[in-house]
Design a binder for these strands. Structure first.
Lengths: 208, 208
DNA sequence: CCAAGTTGTTGACGCCGCGCCAATAGCGTC
DNA sequence: GACGCTATTGGCGCGGCGTCAACAACTTGG
């Protein structure tokens, strides 16, 4: 009962399989999803998956990449005003762009214990770098030389907090949107205002 | 050539297999490590793994649990002094306890893209809760009622930043230990001093 | 309107990893 | 030294994955 096989444009078929894969990989960990299952879900022969994506693993990587494609750019307009205002605007923009994709976004960010996959990490890392660029741009510290790498590192770390806190909001619902907004804003302002100055070349003697 | 099979105490054998599993799972993602490989590494028959751990998956969970067992408690003595002093002391304690297990610790914290595993998440979550307790204790806000859940949520988010920043230090080496120390201290101080007050019950009217 | 070509799609084969279980053989005991 | 307990083994069956040659849907030329 192979319900009348139909011929599709490669792109359409590819997309169709990819959609099923995205859903299944979003529900269960990699090892718990079989290509047989994905194929069945898409109503195609299992071999077709290999034809389009090569390997189960490669399909998985495509899924990860796809799920990280944020609307990104678009509102890359840096607002003006005080530091706090600019930060607040960026935070709001982030929250707005996450809201629609909530479930999907959370699945991608989800941590899965031991044994990290280099390829997956590379994809996540690339997305993080873009985010860092946006944050630094919004804050107005694009790339002044001293302490450049350290600042980026710290913003990456801040990004991890953003992800975790957003999960608290979307999944555990332990934070309201306003509370999350407050947390993200305060933290970034503090980072830029208090921490950055102390690592930019000369160690500014802070009042202990 | 089954190099003269030897009989061991169950605990010893279990531990031996576990050690090999820890190493391999630390190097590659779950699906890329076979029980055959673990068995070979440990110099035992593959079936023995099932005998001791039941399932590959269960073995994996034991590995995750084991790798999260921090020296924990021990120096749970809350220091006294100003907020900043107490925070600083906690940060130092954390950095000291991570240093020895660096590689292992990082492997556990590592993120692995899409499709989170509920069981793994539960284990990580439990460890996080313990960490939150320690932080709140150090800060001196054990469990005063108003805004209790929000505070815990925010500290969990802070914990994510701690992990990420520590990775920057240990893996990417983009931050020195001192810079990391500064970042973690400043952030937590800011969190407690600036953000916490605004979510404790009455919304303190902030200067817009 | 049919034949030939193009190419999306299938199904089966071989391999390997995993869970299970009966058989085997260390090691202590009488 | 024989016996028994149990740690340990090895192989069976199932199922997932990658490959490949055959098949058929759709297109094009006559």
């Amino acid at each position: 009962m192979t319900a009348a096989r139909r011929r599709l444009e490669p792109d359409q078929r590819r997309e169709q399989i990819l959609r099923c894969a995205i859903r299944l990989f979003g529900e269960r960990p990699y090892a718990a999803v079989s290509t047989t299952e994905i194929a069945a879900e898409a109503g195609v022969a299992r071999g077709l998956i290999n034809h389009y994506f090569g390997t189960k693993r490669e399909l998985y990587l495509v899924v990860v990449r796809r799920m990280l494609r944020v609307p990104s750019s678009a509102g890359a307009t840096v607002p003006s005003g005080s530091l706090r205002r600019r930060v607040q605007a960026s935070v709001d923009w982030f929250l707005d762009s996450v809201s629609p994709h909530a479930r999907t976004w959370v699945a991608v960010i989800g941590t899965e214990g031991v044994g990290s996959d280099p390829d997956v990490e590379a994809i996540l890392a690339e997305a993080d770098e873009i985010a860092v660029d946006q944050v630094l741009a919004a804050v107005g510290l694009d790339d002044c030389a001293p302490g450049h790498d350290q600042r980026r590192a710290m913003v990456r770390a801040y990004g991890a907090m953003v992800k975790a806190a957003t999960r608290e909001w979307l999944v555990r619902e332990t934070l309201s949107r306003d509370e999350l907004r407050l947390l993200l804003t305060q933290s970034l302002v503090s980072l830029v205002r208090d921490t950055f100055p102390e690592i930019s070349g000369q160690t500014k003697p802070g009042s202990a």
